[in-house]
Design a protein around this nucleic acid. Structure first.
Length: 423
RNA sequence: GGUGAGAUGCCUGAGUGGCCGAAAGGAACGGUUUGCUAAACCGUCGUACGGGUAACACUGUACCGAGGGUUCGAAUCCCUCUCUCACCGCCA
């Protein structure tokens, strides 16, 4: 969430930036400021009254010790009166704090300076692209047919075991998953990221910390027995590693990478784009997370974009990078670059990675700070990105590389996969 | 799942009603000393939200796992919850 102090000092800027995000309730900004004023006023009243109680209590102790029972009794009467006054102050202070918090979390993150204006996906700006869209031979088919032909993935079997959106990878299909995960992790660790294998379920505090709660509740699977959420992305457990921590500057930057399955209910997304591997309830993903000093975060964002880009280049997949416009960005992001890969048989772009700078929006919730050179505690900036989400990569690898001699795999995967092709 | 013991600052650990935001030791940081390292010595060494200030200073309140309660006063007493450890049971 945003910092109240920042909103107070930059009200005009906040309103202007919220407009870029097409935020519909700019009135919340004034609401926040009013609630914060009230909070301060009540805090002062509370503190002053409590101070009276504390000093009177100390006096009582001394009076008792010196044997002045009557004096002590008199002071007790005073305390009783102070406490009576404190009750309602305490109550309204709590209520105000809760209102302030509940109002504050309704404000999305502010888009950064380089976020293009615009409202819909059509307004996203293509930054650059690479690779060549292959010309497929006559009789080429989409990945779900290839998956069947080479016995790689059984979608129906997944229906039987669990339900739709839970495919079963078999034989070389399963091996390909493992190869991709290993390759991605090795690529990331070779570039300075520390490998992490986190829990796949998180508690409420963690889901709140990265911003899945309160508003995206319905998108996560929830285990009622223990109040755990199945993670929709490794971002959640991995970023929360540093929740409530104050890091030394020498420990920065924090760079982590993690493979996890991701679970998403995808409530409300039915239709033709759910065919095959395009949209699943469970999928594999390797994620990147960084925690860095504020002044470095945009440089790091570019660095992460290039990192993911090189990974895609190594896979020989035609890609494009989009700078998401204000209206298409997520609630919590300050700037996001999406990576899309060309699915040659479906003839469309599929999103395979999303690299974002959250500035201090997540870290403010999680209280992830560092001690700067002046010894002051400051919020860090958090960033994350996929490198990469597997299903759509697999879809494109299968479709784009299909030949009469089988599916020819890119060089970098062969040692992991144990063969140069799926035939 | 059962029984028992616990949860205090970066760590270890003292503290069973007021003099405790909290002893002591260690770590860390700054300094003195030193050819260098080590040692020794001196100092600093929690967080949040207020008030105050040009900024410091100064100052109030809260926090000893979380939430409630008793009391003039709670780290300390009571209740609930969570978690940790040990042993037993079960088990990859």
């Amino acid at each position: 969430m945003l910092q109240v102090q920042f909103i107070r000092q930059n009200k005009e800027l906040v309103l202007e930036r919220l407009a870029v995000k097409h935020f519909k309730e700019p009135g919340i900004v004034e609401e926040v400021l009013a609630l914060d004023d009230q909070r301060k006023k009540l805090t002062l009243e509370y503190d002053e009254t409590q101070a009276k109680i504390n000093s009177a209590s100390k006096e009582i102790g001394k009076l008792m010790a010196s044997g002045d029972k009557a004096g002590a009794e008199a002071r007790k009467q005073d305390v009783a009166a102070f406490k009576q006054a404190l009750g309602p102050i305490d109550e309204s202070l709590r209520e105000t704090e809760k209102n302030l918090h509940d109002t504050l979390v309704k404000l999305p993150n502010l888009p950064g300076a380089n976020v293009p204006p615009g409202k819909t996906p059509e307004d996203n700006v293509e930054v650059r692209g690479g690779g060549v869209k292959p010309t497929l031979a006559e009789g080429s088919v989409p990945h779900w047919d290839l998956a069947k032909k080479y016995n790689l993935i059984d979608f129906e079997l997944g229906n039987k075991i669990t339900g739709s959106g839970f495919p079963v990878y078999i034989n070389k299909g399963a091996r390909l998953q493992r190869a991709l995960i290993s390759y991605f992790l090795d690529y990331n660790t070779a570039n300075g990221y520390t490998e992490v294998l986190p829990p796949y379920m998180v508690n409420e505090a963690s889901a709140y910390g990265t911003g899945q709660l309160p508003d995206k509740e319905g998108q996560m699977y929830f285990v009622t027995e223990d109040n755990f959420y199945l993670i929709p992305t490794a971002e959640v457990p991995v970023t929360n590693i540093y929740r409530d921590e104050i890091l030394k500057e020498a420990a920065l930057p924090v760079r982590m990478t993690a493979y996890t399955p991701c679970f998403r209910r995808e409530a409300g997304s039915y239709g033709k784009d759910v065919r095959g591997l395009n949209r699943l309830h469970q999928f594999e993903k390797v994620e990147l997370v960084q925690l860095v000093q504020p002044e470095k975060s945009y440089g790091v964002l570019q660095e992460m974009v290039e990192h993911v880009e090189k990974l895609l280049i190594s896979l020989n997949l035609p890609y494009r990078i989009l700078n998401l416009c204000g209206g298409d960005m997520s609630f919590t992001s300050a700037q996001t670059f999406d990576f899309e890969v060309w699915s040659a048989a479906q003839e469309k772009w599929l999103e395979v990675s999303s690299v974002s700078n959250f500035e201090s929006y997540q870290t403010n919730r999680m209280k992830i700070r560092y001690k700067d050179e002046n010894g002051k505690n400051q919020l860090l900036h958090s960033l994350n990105g996929s490198s990469l989400a597997l299903p759509r990569i697999v879809a494109c690898l299968l479709e784009n590389n299909q030949t009469p001699e089988g599916i020819i795999l890119p060089e970098v995967l062969r040692s992991y996969f144990g063969s140069d092709r799926i035939a």
